[in-house]
Deep mutational scan, measured.
Amino acid sequence: MASQGTKRSYEQMETDGERQNATEIRASVGKMIDGIGRFYIQMCTELKLSDYEGRLIQNSLTIERMVLSAFDERRNKYLEEHPSAGKDPKKTGGPIYKRVDRKWMRELVLYDKEEIRRIWRQANNGDDATAGLTHMMIWHSNLNDTTYQRTRALVRTGMDPRMCSLMQGSTLPRRSGAAGAAVKGVGTMVMELIRMIKRGINDRNFWRGENGRKTRSAYERMCNILKGKFQTAAQRAMMDQVRESRNPGNAEIEDLIFLARSALILRGSVAHKSCLPACVYGPAVASGYDFEKEGYSLVGIDPFKLLQNSQVYSLIRPNENPAHKSQLVWMACNSAAFEDLRVLSFIRGTKVSPRGKLSTRGVQIASNENMDAMESSTLELRSRYWAIRTRSGGNTNQQRASAGQISVQPAFSVQRNLPFDKPTIMAAFTGNTEGRTSDMRAEIIRMMEGAKPEEMSFQGRGVFELSDERAANPIVPSFDMSNEGSYFFGDNAEEYDN
C-alpha cells in the first residue's frame, strides 16, 4: 500500500510504541512475548500442572481467558453494579484439565481477579502490559475465525453469508486497541457500523446529549479505520460520505453494504499476525530463551520457528480426527482463516481442507461434555516452508469459486491468482447506482469489472525454506488448481455463540 510509510507498523501498534527502528520493534515485541511466557509459567505453578498438562491447549485457553477477564475493567465495573446470582464479580476462573488415573478430569478453578492481575503485572515488570493482553485477544479471535462461520451475524446486519472472507476479527472485544483495529476485516468494521446506525434509528437519543457526542466521535473513528483499509480513492470518498452524514440511517447502511461487497474484489488491507497460545510461549521462556534479547516478529519467520520446536497437546472428542484438529489450530496460529487453501497447503506441506470436510468441533470443551471418553493427542503445528504475512489485500483475480465463501483475504505475501467468483459478486451490483453516491458507485463498479483474471497478485513473492531466515531465496510455489480455494466452501461450520 502506498501510504505504508505514514502508518505505524503493526509491531508498533502491538507494543504501543512511538516510531521505533526494526531492532527496537523486535525487542519490544519480544518483551511482550516474554511477559506472556513468564505469566503462563507462574500460572502453571499456581495450578500445580504437570509439564504435559501445561502444554494442553484447553488449559492455555482457560488461563488466557482468566487474565483477560481480570483486566476487563468495563465488564468488571458492570458486574459490580449489576450483581447477578451466583456470579462473584471479583473472581474469575474456568475449567482446568488434569490427568488422573490414566483419565482426563475437569476441575473448575476460581481465583481472585486481583490475584491474577498481581501475577500478570509481576510477570511483566510491574506494568499492565496491555500489548500482551491484546495479543491474547487476537489469538482467540484468530481461533474463532478458523472455527466458526459468522453466517447468522452477517444475515442479521443485512449482509450476504458468502462475504465471510471479510469477517476477520469479528469476535475481537471493543477494547483491543490499535492492534485489534489493524486485524479487523472490512466486513467486521461494516458490521460494527451498521449495528451502531441501527441503534440510532431505533433509539432517538442515541446521537443526542453528552453521551451522543461520545457516540458520534466513536462512529467517526470507526469510519476512519474502515476508510484506511480501502485502497481505492472511490471507496475512500464513499467512506467520507458515510462519516460526514448528519443523521446516519438506511442510506448509510446501503452504502456500507455496497462497500463491503466491493471489497470482495477491490480488497481492503487487513493486517495478519501470528499470535500463538500462551502454552507455546511459556515452555520456550522456561527453556531459557530470551525473546527480548533475541527479538521477535509476528509477521516473519519467528512464529514458524517457534511452532517448529513446540509440543502442544489437545483434548480430542471420541469421533474427532486429531489431524483435522491440528489443521484448525495451525490455521489459527498463522492467522489464515480466509487465505486461499492452495497457498496454505503449499506452505504447510500437507493438504489443507475446507472447514466442512474437517471432523472436528471447536477447541474448547463445553462444561456439560462427558470427560470419560476424552483422549488427548499432539497437535501437528509444523510447516514445510515459511512466508511473510501481508497486510495488503493483493490485486484481484477471477477463479472458480464456491457456493460458500466467494473470495479470499490473503494472509501471506505469496504470488498467486486470487480466487473470487466474479459473476456471483457482480450480480449483486445491478441497477442500484442512484442517489448521492452514484458517481462513486459507478466508478467502483467500473474498477471491479476491469479486474483481470490473468493478473498475478504479489508478483514474484515466494515462500522460503525454514533454514532461509533472511528470506534470501524465494520459492514461487505451484498450486494444484483442481483443489478448492475457499475454506468455508459450501460450508456447515458451527455458528459462533458468545
Results as ranks from 00 to 15, higher is better:
residue 1 M to V: 07
residue 1 M to K: 11
residue 3 S to F: 15
residue 6 T to D: 01
residue 8 R to G: 06
residue 12 Q to L: 12
residue 20 Q to N: 02
residue 20 Q to T: 02
residue 23 T to A: 13
residue 28 S to M: 06
residue 30 G to V: 05
residue 37 G to C: 11
residue 40 Y to E: 01
residue 41 I to F: 13
residue 43 M to D: 09
residue 43 M to F: 11
residue 53 E to A: 15
residue 53 E to Y: 15
residue 66 M to A: 11
residue 71 F to E: 05
residue 73 E to D: 12
residue 74 R to D: 14
residue 78 Y to S: 02
residue 80 E to N: 13
residue 82 H to L: 05
residue 85 A to V: 11
residue 85 A to N: 15
residue 100 V to N: 11
residue 113 K to Q: 13
residue 118 R to P: 08
residue 121 R to V: 07
residue 127 D to R: 10
residue 137 M to F: 12
residue 142 N to T: 04
residue 152 R to D: 02
residue 152 R to G: 07
residue 170 S to N: 05
residue 177 G to R: 05
residue 180 G to H: 02
residue 185 G to P: 05
residue 188 T to H: 09
residue 192 E to Q: 04
residue 194 I to C: 05
residue 195 R to S: 08
residue 195 R to P: 11
residue 197 I to Q: 04
residue 199 R to F: 07
residue 201 I to G: 03
residue 204 R to Q: 12
residue 210 E to G: 11
residue 212 G to R: 03
residue 224 N to P: 06
residue 224 N to M: 09
residue 233 A to G: 07
residue 233 A to M: 13
residue 246 R to P: 08
residue 250 N to E: 00
residue 274 S to H: 00
residue 278 A to Q: 01
residue 280 V to T: 12
residue 286 A to E: 13
residue 292 E to D: 08
residue 293 K to G: 13
residue 305 K to C: 11
residue 306 L to W: 08
residue 314 S to G: 14
residue 317 R to E: 02
residue 325 K to Y: 08
residue 345 S to D: 07
residue 345 S to G: 14
residue 349 G to L: 10
residue 353 S to G: 09
residue 353 S to A: 12
residue 355 R to K: 14
residue 358 L to E: 09
residue 359 S to T: 11
residue 364 Q to M: 12
residue 367 S to W: 11
residue 368 N to C: 02
residue 371 M to H: 06
residue 371 M to G: 05
residue 374 M to L: 14
residue 393 G to P: 04
residue 394 G to S: 03
residue 396 T to E: 00
residue 407 S to F: 02
residue 408 V to S: 12
residue 408 V to R: 00
residue 410 P to V: 04
residue 412 F to N: 10
residue 414 V to C: 15
residue 417 N to T: 13
residue 418 L to M: 15
residue 423 P to V: 14
residue 427 A to W: 02
residue 436 R to K: 10
residue 436 R to A: 02
residue 446 R to P: 00
residue 456 M to D: 01
residue 458 F to Q: 05
residue 458 F to A: 00
residue 464 F to M: 00
residue 467 S to W: 03
residue 470 R to F: 00
residue 471 A to D: 03
residue 474 P to E: 00
residue 475 I to D: 05
residue 476 V to R: 03
residue 480 D to G: 06
residue 489 F to D: 11
residue 491 D to M: 11
residue 494 E to K: 14
